[in-house]
């Protein structure tokens, strides 16, 4: 494996992208989960698919467009979708959760129509739905790297505001935290992270990377910072372990990563139960 890793660029790309996504997906996931918005990642990943499909469609008609990485358009759609969700939440004040199914089904509908127009029902689509390690190019990797740097810097700088808003929005407002702006920035970050993580685990599984490590961490961590640290550790174990297992067993990496996250969650829950049982 180590030899193969030296030899094949696509493996290096996969591992490096995996390491970075293993940091940023759970990092943002912590804030999403504690705000009870775990499903937002699902909605945005489906919108991202629509963006990728739109990019493939444009590539069919304009040759120059084929040189542009479809992930960028995916990001654009995802960002627009995130703002759309915020608007829907305001419109349906008393049914906030409606924003998720509306966006999710709208996204997948749009994606399917674009794909059929672009003759995209082929192995590419399969890659986007379930992730493909082989498909990660150097350009994809640099997109992941740029997003990682941005996410880590922004979350570090706005950490106390994000934390306060997640815990108690009303009190944060009274204390002069600019909730609107910070929400806006945060949701954009989520949209970008989903767009870049999709390539490893795919549209259908991307939200797992944002929620499963956090779900495990939240059971055993003390305090918010520790929750973040554990979430990232679990995320990394799942991504790296999943990639290695997938390589040796020759199975789908996206699915393996998600199953490994679920296994970690299970172990943590059992550990917690045993600890409670002992005391």
């Amino acid at each position: 494996m180590i030899q193969a890793l030296w030899k094949f660029e696509f493996l290096q790309n996969a591992f490096l992208a995996g390491i970075l996504i293993g940091i940023i997906a759970p990092l943002l996931g912590v804030f999403i989960v504690v705000r009870r918005q775990a499903l937002i990642a699902d909605a945005l990943s489906h919108i991202t698919l629509a963006g990728i499909a739109a990019s493939l469609l444009l590539g069919k008609y304009f040759t120059f467009w084929q040189g542009i990485n479809p992930v960028y358009m995916g990001m654009g759609f995802s960002a627009a979708g995130s703002l759309f969700i915020e608007q829907l939440r305001k419109v349906y004040k008393h049914f906030e959760e409606l924003a998720i199914p509306i966006t999710l089904s709208g996204g997948i509908g749009l994606g399917v129509v674009f794909l059929s127009l672009a003759d995209g029902f082929n192995s590419d689509l399969f890659n986007y739905l379930f992730g493909s390690v082989i498909a990660i190019s150097r350009s994809d990797l640099s997109a992941v790297a740029v997003i990682t740097v941005i996410v880590v810097i922004v979350v570090t700088l706005l950490y106390k505001e994000l934390f306060f808003l997640s815990f108690d929005e009303e009190q944060a407002n009274v204390s002069g935290v600019r909730a609107k702006w910070i929400h806006f920035i945060f949701i954009l970050l989520v949209a970008f992270v989903i767009a870049v993580s999709m390539q490893i685990v795919g549209v259908l599984l991307v939200s797992a990377l944002m929620t499963l490590p956090v779900a495990a961490s939240i059971r055993i961590a003390r305090g918010f910072k520790q929750t973040i640290v554990y979430s990232i550790i679990f995320g990394e174990v799942a991504v790296l372990g999943g990639l290695i297992l997938a390589y040796y067993l020759d199975i789908a990496p996206g699915g393996t990563i998600v199953l490994l996250s679920a296994l970690i969650l299970l172990v943590v829950l059992l550990f917690k139960r045993m600890k409670q049982w002992k005391s």
Partner: peptide
């Protein structure tokens, strides 16, 4: 606030971290 203790009781924040929130506006952005 009246609603101060109506937060989600599963929220993973330590007492220290909750009290630190009170410094948010005094510290200022960044």
């Amino acid at each position: 606030s009246q609603k101060a203790n109506s937060f989600n009781s599963g929220f993973p924040a330590s007492v220290f971290e909750v009290v630190s929130m009170g410094l948010t506006s005094k510290l200022g952005l960044f």
